[in-house]
Design a protein around this nucleic acid. Structure first.
Lengths: 333, 333
DNA sequence: TAAGTCAATGTAACCGTTTACATTTTTGAG
DNA sequence: CTCAAAAATGTAAACGGTTACATTGACTTA
């Protein structure tokens, strides 16, 4: 492996000068720079990232911590992160936290030791103390979908409440009179917000009842089971707004098992806009978050902070988009 | 940040001794070790991974390079890798290559500079020279789904040919007489093998014709289009073996559009066993690869090589499993 | 008892950069 | 022409570990 000293020797200058040329820092004579560049070229020299990392306390790595890459929501996010990072010459370390605060803490500890440049954390369980610790160490961090309480750093999320309202409104417009809601785990801010949005609109409906809301766990199976409980209480229900797409897919399954036609008898709307919604039968109407874009944006913000050293603590709330599909289609007359 | 020298000072020993205690290398007096441990505890000392990396040329990082994490095949693989790595205290860097040899090369170059401990590469486009270069540098590497020609390192893949035969056989058993095949890009060894398996079984069938094979690109849309071409030539076809699940899903869509009933009129079988197959309507029969397990195994092998320094160059071919579902169900009589 | 082993520990070089500080050379103003 | 400021470059100390080699003392063994 050729080192900076080899280059220095060949170019007839000191290592400091070579370093200056490489990093385009401080002034160096154009002619000298030429010599150095030639030497670099000739030796095919590539600066060693680890040595650099040790000296500068930055390894050119972004840590992306998310609950589970198997959850269809996250690959798009990860791809958004990776694309931007790669363009900027950074690499991405991926960690699955399973929404376990402990696992998150352990990742943070390990990755700090590796001098990662910054963290992007998509988590509902991340501990306030962990975030604070990072802040204190001056390590940039961007949070996704985290509550308001963590004001001490940049946060990105979608406008969940508005999205939920749009969804319910849409169901009503399509002719639904009795719209139920399958809500996600209430420790997740996203789930809480969506439920609030639902209540705001559905709460005013004639015949509304709190029993139209049943809990789920953001996965397919829980959506399926929720429908059973819903139908037991409300056999006359004609619309379901699920707290996310996976539960909506579960709902679709449950309805099919019961030979209830979607969208003729019951209309279903999901939330998130994951790819799966295009392959269900019927195709699933959903309120789409700009998932890939969220990843891109988070990374951009993180890199800005890394490069500038200025922390912004911005809270960005992205717009969501209703994607009407067959699962909420009005009968054609 | 507390360093090894702080610990040495507090414990009243040299840094070498501290290092020995930490790494449990060479012999050190039990009593002395106790002092050191106490000092470590007291100072909450954590060895710095980057300094270690620089000295030992290993950062405790595994590079996972795959075509695209958005492809539903790969999250499970990535999770398998990450789970094992995490258990062993290693972290995972993720790179999307988009099956572009250039991008792969660039990742390898960058990550080598970061002293990653080893590479896991799931790629069809990886260049022989890149693999060789890694070998020469003594960097462990495990390949997934790569051709035989790269004998110079460990390779893991599924038994694609056998899987294809099982699939076609299954379709025949379910009553199909005219089984078509949508094959994937022929530069992929997986696609070639599956096609060979198909030919072995279907080739012997009465009324077999090469025109029963049409190309696709391993994505949903190509599967859908392929069905159009197939039906134009073979309106009497009653079975489709798609080269992967995505194309099978596309086929399902195309058939539904044409009001052709699955499985009554045409039966469909996919390959891979991705999660999506459970949410189509009808649910999709598929030949499942042990995807998560492949990730685990690859990582285990890689770590073995990292720890032992011995390269095995094993070729492991994993068994696949037919998962019969509704899309190939025989009519009930 | 002399010589050879082995356990325990320390010293200092090394891994490959960056960078503060020092030194020398140029430049431009007065 | 002089001198201060600016430009160009070099020296050497970090960064925080690992490890080859040296040293010391205790223990075997013939």
């Amino acid at each position: 492996m050729t080192t900076i000293r080899d280059v220095a020797r060949l170019a007839g200058v000191s290592v400091a000068t070579v370093s200056r040329v490489i990093n385009q820092k401080d002034s160096v004579n154009t002619e000298t720079a030429g010599q150095v560049l030639k030497a670099i070229e000739q030796l095919q020299y590539e600066p060693n990232a680890v040595a650099r990392g040790l000296a500068g306390k930055k390894m050119g790595i972004i840590a992306l911590i998310l609950p589970d890459i198997l959850n269809p929501f996250f690959p798009a996010l990860a791809r958004g992160v990776e694309d931007v990072a790669h363009k900027k010459g950074l690499t991405v370390i991926l960690g699955n936290s399973d929404d376990l605060g402990l696992k998150e803490s352990s990742y943070i500890k390990v990755l700090k030791q590796k001098y990662v440049d910054g963290f992007i954390i998509a988590s509902n369980t991340i501990r306030e103390e962990d975030v604070q610790a990072l802040r204190n160490d001056g390590i940039p961090i961007v949070l996704l979908d985290r509550g308001l309480d963590t004001a001490a750093c940049a946060v990105i999320r979608s406008n969940n409440r508005v999205g939920a309202k749009i969804a319910v409104q849409h169901l009503i417009e399509q002719g639904c009179q009795r719209v139920a809601h399958i809500y996600g785990p209430q420790e997740f801010i996203t789930a809480r917000e969506r439920m609030l949005g639902y209540k705001e609109v559905a709460g005013g409906l004639e015949g509304y009842s709190p029993s139209l809301m049943v809990p789920g766990t953001f996965d397919i199976e829980s959506g399926r089971k929720a429908v059973g409980r819903l139908l037991a209480c409300h056999p006359d229900l004609d619309g379901i707004f699920a707290g996310n797409d996976l539960m909506a897919i579960g709902a679709l399954k449950a309805l099919r098992e019961r030979r209830i036609l979607v969208p003729e008898q019951v209309k279903v709307c999901g939330f998130d806009g994951i790819g799966l919604t295009e392959i269900t039968e019927p195709e699933l109407t959903t309120v789409a978050q700009p998932i890939y874009e969220m990843g891109r944006l988070a990374t951009q913000m993180l890199i800005d902070e890394i490069e500038s050293g200025i922390r912004e603590n911005t809270l960005i709330e992205l717009d969501v988009t209703l994607i009407p599909r067959k699962s909420t289609q009005k009968e054609e007359n």
